[in-house]
């Protein structure tokens, strides 16, 4: 439980950071989305019982700040988490480059899924697609820049906790 809470606190920090970056980028008419980062570490390195609740809580925080049906991001994060978790033994998540590739792929998939869900009921404007493409490029760049730091932060935050006797045996 404590590990879930610590992990959630790091995700809350990420959410606050992304919100500030978007606030700063607003005058430039571009924004970033870091959905892949919210699920990647927990899915690739932690047991399902610890990682999934943290991803669900992070999804609920993101959902509360998005004008989409509440639960959309919770379920998208859950699906991304489960897919990464189920395939992690077959994926090159031990090397930094492989890890980065997986985070970028997860972020891309979540961005496209959210674009489909958020834009679905709205009338199409030709001006929307260049904006989404620019947002996607900025998001991938942002995730690539901060993923190593954020993985280290999560690892160090969990290392601060005393060892769990159940996990030692």
């Amino acid at each position: 439980m404590r590990r879930v809470l610590v992990l959630f606190l790091t995700l809350l920090l990420l959410w606050a950071g992304v919100a500030q970056v978007n606030d700063l980028l607003a005058p430039a008419h571009v924004s970033v989305f870091a959905g892949g980062l919210f699920v990647a570490y927990a899915a690739l390195f932690l047991p399902l019982g610890e990682g999934l609740p943290a991803s669900l809580l992070a999804g609920a925080v993101c959902d509360a700040h998005a004008p989409v049906r509440f639960g959309t991001l919770v379920l998208l994060f859950a699906a991304a988490h489960v897919l990464l978790f189920a395939w992690r033994d077959r994926l090159p998540h031990d090397q930094p480059a492989g890890r980065l590739g997986l985070v970028l792929l997860a972020n891309l998939a979540l961005f496209l899924a959210l674009s489909g869900l958020a834009a679905g009921p709205l009338p199409a404007h030709a001006g929307r697609w260049p904006r989404l493409a620019a947002d996607l490029a900025a998001s991938e760049l942002f995730v690539a820049l901060v993923s190593a730091w954020f993985f280290a932060l999560q690892e160090q935050a969990l290392a601060l906790l005393p060892p769990d006797p159940e996990r030692m045996f």
Partner: peptide, 11 residues
């Protein structure tokens, strides 16, 4: 307090 101007929504 916060600006969230994305391609999906503007709030």
């Amino acid at each position: 307090a916060q600006r969230d101007l994305s391609g999906w929504w503007q709030r």
